[in-house]
């Protein structure tokens, strides 16, 4: 392992993480709910439909408005997607199905779950981190 000092951004990573944690923690305290993105978005497809999904749309709207505010006020953030079209589609399906079966993703299990000391979430985080490390290893060091 070699640390990529050129791309390492400790301060913006920490500060961004604190914002994410504040948002999730305040949402739990003030609204009593988990700020897990896959659960919030996936709940929109629930059968039968929930009586009120407005708060889910409001949360997703907040995410999009954040991006719009960033575009208006700051320089464009770095963005590079290396996945091909078939890889993107396969990855999207896996992320959509997987997070719903697991009842959470990086936000629901990773941030909220670990902040609640949930053993169930810790198991989920270990499983998806291990799968992520192995997938990138195969992608970059075996298949390439």
């Amino acid at each position: 392992m070699q640390i990529d000092w050129q791309h390492f951004t400790p301060w913006s990573a920490l500060a961004g993480g604190v914002l994410i944690g504040l948002s999730a923690g305040l949402f739990a305290l003030l609204a009593g709910r988990i700020a897990g993105i896959s659960g919030i978005v996936g709940g929109l497809f629930r059968i039968p439909m929930a009586s009120s999904n407005h708060w889910r749309w409001a949360f997703v709207g907040g995410l999009i408005v954040a991006a719009l505010i960033w575009r208006l006020t700051s320089s464009p953030p770095a963005f590079a997607l290396s996945a091909s079209l078939p890889q993107s589609i396969a990855a999207g399906l896996l992320v959509g199905l997987g997070t719903r079966y697991a009842n959470g993703c990086t936000s629901g299990h990773g941030v909220c779950g670990l902040a609640r000391f949930s053993v169930r979430s810790l198991a989920a985080v270990l499983a998806f981190m291990a799968a992520g490390f192995i997938t990138v290893y195969l992608l970059r060091h075996v298949a390439a």
Partner: peptide, 8 residues
């Protein structure tokens, strides 16, 4: 499954 998609 999520982790595989996340890595991909």
């Amino acid at each position: 499954a999520f982790g595989i998609g996340w890595g991909l």
